[in-house]
């Protein structure tokens, strides 16, 4: 599944980032790496969503959310 398919209020583990290099790099610099835990806080109908990684909130567009692949749900 991708971050876009995640549910509000649940946490997941990032498995892989499949995005254009510069976008992927920016996310990695913010600490979004394979194995990192992310929590989805809010989501809009058009796919824009807010998630939290390493204690900081970010808003991302649908296209980026689609490129972040998640492993299983985390408690």
């Amino acid at each position: 599944m991708t971050l876009l398919q995640g549910e509000i209020g649940k946490s997941y583990q990032v498995q892989e980032i499949r995005l254009q290099e510069t976008t992927a790099r920016r996310l990695q610099i913010l600490g979004l790496l394979s194995g990192t835990r992310v929590e989805i806080l809010n989501k809009k109908k058009n796919g824009t969503l807010i998630f939290k990684v390493r204690g900081t909130r970010y808003a991302i567009g649908k296209r980026i959310a689609e490129g972040i692949l998640l492993g299983g749900e985390q408690p």
């Binding site: 996310l27 900081t56 909130r57 970010y58 808003a59 991302i60 567009g61 296209r63 980026i64």
Partner: peptide, 10 residues
């Protein structure tokens, strides 16, 4: 058209 939002919400 590649509208890619990525912004920190402090």
């Amino acid at each position: 058209g590649k509208y890619n939002l990525l912004i920190e919400l402090p």
